[in-house]
Write a protein that binds this DNA or RNA. Sequence first.
DNA 1: CAGGCGTAATGACAAGTCATCATAACGATG
DNA 2: CATCGTTATGATGACTTGTCATTACGCCTG
Lengths: 108, 108
Amino acid sequence: MEPRFNIWFEVDGEVATSCWRMRLLSAIDEQGSITAGAEAMGVPYRVAWQRVHEMEERMGMQLLDTQTGGPEGGGARLTDAGRDQVDRMLVFCDEADRAIREIYLRTF
Amino acid sequence: MEPRFNIWFEVDGEVATSCWRMRLLSAIDEQGSITAGAEAMGVPYRVAWQRVHEMEERMGMQLLDTQTGGPEGGGARLTDAGRDQVDRMLVFCDEADRAIREIYLRTF
DNA sequence: CAGGCGTAATGACAAGTCATCATAACGATG
DNA sequence: CATCGTTATGATGACTTGTCATTACGCCTG
């Protein structure tokens, strides 16, 4: 049996954020656009946009600063609040991952 | 934002076991039947049976000792292997719960 | 020995969820 | 003002999941 697990945070029973979603946000910021970030994560644009939309709605804050039109067609960057969330969440995911793995080895 | 999370174990990308499923097994064993255990967990019999079936298939071991017919109509009990799994998993879930909660408080 | 009872087991269908395709809107640039 | 790559969103189909209904089982009772 493979020791896999997922962790996410919920608000009102719906997924607000997760480790994967935060990595998606990070990829979008690195690539400079939702399109490129989605491709880097291996999901279609629609899915990436929907995830971002859900996160912003359920967390009640703006995470991406998007721009449509322009010389490059547009793009997306993390807001200051978004970057803070991503940084903290990635640290949390990393530590939680290590802790759970340790408990798993100790228990089984 | 509410600090909720779920943990489960996967095999080949499919959910093999989880804290809720192990509590279901425990309830079935306490009540003596899948029917009563399902009702205690607030899910229809079909769902409970399906979860048990999935677990046994994906973990590759028999978890319940079921009996159909008889004076009471039948019933279900945990096998020795099943009880061992339930006990270990519940301990794991409890410790993981505490560890993640502690990391959450420290990070956010 | 046949019918009844409460359970396990499973087939079939409905509903809700989720991914994918397709399309419109945008705006600086040349 | 046409172009380009992006954001944004509508619509549809596939898949998953919960729910209803049915069958099988075996001891017990009359």
